[in-house]
């Protein structure tokens, strides 16, 4: 894919009509209005962020696809855009994986484990390593 040297010197590069650019500009203006409108509605909890990011994502894709001419670009350029975003997602997912994983605070009470985090792990048989002598019961917290 690197070797399709153009025949001779000229660079074939088809130039998009102006209407494409103005069209995208209008789309972006609309989406900005939508961003503000969407922010006034309470979708409850974390859904607000998801919706806000989705609208911003659409705007960003429009800019990338048309303004930055990725639609005419080689597959390699498309791949590099996706790789960049993919590794950013890796950073976010694994970092938050750690933080969300922590919220399941285990309280090994009598009836087995009860997690207080948003997602309950359910009852897991009590793992009781045999201390030499079991003194009086008392809540031990992680």
């Amino acid at each position: 894919m690197a070797q399709q040297h153009g025949n001779g010197h000229s660079v074939q590069h088809h130039v998009a009509p102006v209407i494409h650019y103005v069209g995208v500009w209008l789309l972006l203006m609309l989406l900005t209005g939508l961003t503000v409108a969407v922010a006034t509605v309470d979708f409850g909890g974390s859904l607000n962020t998801v919706v806000a990011l989705a609208v911003a994502g659409v705007k960003a894709t429009a800019v990338i696809w048309i303004f930055m001419e990725v639609r005419h670009a080689q597959p390699l350029t498309k791949l590099s855009v996706i790789t960049g975003i993919f590794f950013l997602v890796i950073l976010l997912v694994f970092t938050f994986g750690d933080y969300f994983g922590r919220s399941t605070t285990f309280t090994p009470l009598e009836e087995g484990w009860r997690s207080d985090g948003p997602h309950s792990v359910g009852t897991v048989p009590e793992l009781e390593p045999k201390p030499a002598h079991a003194p009086a019961k008392g809540p031990a917290k992680h």
Binding site: E128, P129, P131, K137
Partner: peptide, 12 residues
């Protein structure tokens, strides 16, 4: 994992 949860009745 086995040693991750402090057993009940430990001296604080």
């Amino acid at each position: 994992y086995v040693n991750y949860i402090p057993p009940k009745g430990a001296m604080d």
